[in-house]
Amino acid sequence: MSSAPSLIASTGDSLREAFGRALSDLADEFPEVVVLDADIAGGTGTHHFRTSHPERFFQFGIAEQNMMAAAGGMAAVGLVPVVTTFAVFCLRALEQARLSIAYAQRNAKIVASHPGIDVGPDGGSAQALEDLAAFRAIPGMTVISPADPVEMRLATRAILAHQGPCYMRTGRSPSRRIFGDDHKFEIGKGQIIHEGNDVTLVATGVEVARALDAAAILKEEGISARVVNMATIKPIDGELLARCAAQTGAFVTAEDHNIHGGLGSAVAEALATRHPCPIEFVGMKDEFGASGEPEELAAHFGLDAHAIARAAHTVLARKTKRRNR
């Protein structure tokens, strides 16, 4: 007799697993929370909530537009809906999120797993590279992308406690632990997680661990790089960015997303009006992803630590040229 197939579900240290466990753990503390799923609970991590609180778990089938707008209706009667699906399918229901959630100012949370090339072998069709840009452009929408399982737990609590619509990325692949149990998370606040004076590396999501690796590479090369974890992309922490610009005078942004419209754009917008300085952008360069393992893809598309370090050299050359002008 053959054994059952082993499905590749949310397990281990992935951000989706951390989110799913946190959601289930927080359910009693937030009794108005309900979870909405479109037939991928095992993939988004919400199967934990389904098991612990079945009466507050709503299956919508493979129909994301209806699910997203229905979340608006649930919020209208006083519930706090957490809409969960893959990031690409959040794009499918973008207009529902715009009208029936954001425009109506509903207290609903959209949590997207499988963002970016971190999706890996499922390939280009499944790798959302536009979600941060799209949701950032919706008025009143808070946009968050935590970096590790510890931060994911804290961010999950924070979005449930926050009044207003939020879009949060989790992640498919095993995630590196970055933070200790004393880590703090506050919506709208970035953090300097590694000190340095020559250049600031601002990263979000899976790119934070790679930015830390890049700082180590740069240190070997005699460059002192500061690393900022920017888990909230909107509202962006402009104050911290301006301070870092004043202190280091050069920036590299890093995100698992198209370089147009996401973290890099948000940082550039914030610095343009506060403290302009040279910036290099690490991310997908206006192209779609492909199948492969996440680390292979990061190297292939220039999102790995070496790419961030190379971008730091480029921006430092521009900084020097600027000073010498």
Partner: peptide, 24 residues
């Protein structure tokens, strides 16, 4: 009860309201 103007969404919002009211 909700903002409309993009066809198709109102019925989904109504479905969500009906599900939520039943839960409550």
């Amino acid at each position: 009860e909700t903002s409309t103007g993009s066809l198709g969404q109102g019925i989904s919002v109504a479905v969500g309201m009906a599900m939520g009211l039943r839960l409550k």
